Simulated assay, not measured.
Amino acid sequence: MMLLERQPQLQQMDALLADAIGGRGRVVVVLGEAGAGKTALVEAFASRLDDGLTMLRSACEDLSIPDPLGPLYDLAREARWELPRAMDDRQVQRLPLFS
């Protein structure tokens, strides 16, 4: 997939991936207005990854009252991290868990 005018962002993401592979973990946040091409950029980047790499993705909810720390919760679930059962039942505060 070829994205117009997105090569600098893809190169930056490639450099951050090289850092992560080298043992210096990285988190990439892609933000912008609706329709700006965020999803296309991430999908283009993901399509270039080696099969041995795992990329976890999350997104903010498009609701008027988003779930606090929802994207972190989604990442934890996608990574299959063991989370306390109470957290799954939303009985505890998530802020201390992710702090």
Score class of each variant (00 low, 15 high):
48 R>T: 04
14 D>V: 06
8 P>H: 09
92 V>C: 10
10 L>H: 04
82 E>R: 15
47 S>R: 14
57 R>A: 06
12 Q>I: 00
73 Y>I: 03
82 E>G: 05
78 E>L: 09
23 G>I: 05
22 G>S: 08
5 E>V: 07
69 L>G: 01
96 P>C: 00
4 L>K: 13
81 W>N: 08
79 A>W: 03
27 V>C: 14
7 Q>I: 00
58 S>C: 07
35 G>A: 04
19 D>C: 01
40 A>T: 10
78 E>Y: 09
84 P>T: 02
90 R>C: 02
16 L>P: 01
23 G>P: 04
43 E>P: 14
46 A>M: 13
53 L>W: 12
64 S>W: 12
66 P>E: 01
77 R>P: 04
19 D>L: 10
89 D>C: 07
30 V>K: 05
45 F>A: 02
17 L>S: 05
95 L>M: 10
24 R>Q: 13
10 L>A: 09
3 L>A: 03
6 R>L: 14
77 R>D: 04
13 M>T: 00
34 A>E: 13
96 P>H: 02
50 D>E: 13
11 Q>A: 11
71 P>C: 04
67 D>C: 04
93 Q>P: 01
17 L>N: 03
96 P>W: 03
79 A>C: 12
33 E>H: 07
11 Q>S: 06
84 P>K: 00
16 L>N: 06
7 Q>V: 00
38 K>A: 09
79 A>K: 11
33 E>R: 12
64 S>M: 10
22 G>Y: 01
27 V>L: 14
2 M>K: 08
86 A>K: 00
42 V>M: 08
86 A>F: 08
42 V>P: 02
14 D>C: 02
94 R>C: 01
56 L>D: 00
89 D>G: 12
87 M>N: 02
44 A>S: 11
69 L>I: 06
34 A>Q: 12
31 L>Q: 15
54 T>V: 05
89 D>F: 11
12 Q>N: 07
49 L>T: 00
57 R>T: 01
30 V>D: 08
95 L>E: 13
81 W>F: 09
26 R>Y: 05
21 I>H: 06
85 R>H: 06
70 G>R: 01
39 T>C: 02
60 C>A: 08
65 I>N: 13
74 D>K: 11
46 A>H: 10
46 A>N: 00
50 D>K: 14
31 L>F: 13
89 D>Q: 06
32 G>N: 10
85 R>L: 08
13 M>V: 01
85 R>K: 01
59 A>T: 12
60 C>F: 03
25 G>Y: 14
54 T>W: 08
85 R>Y: 10
92 V>F: 03
36 A>R: 15
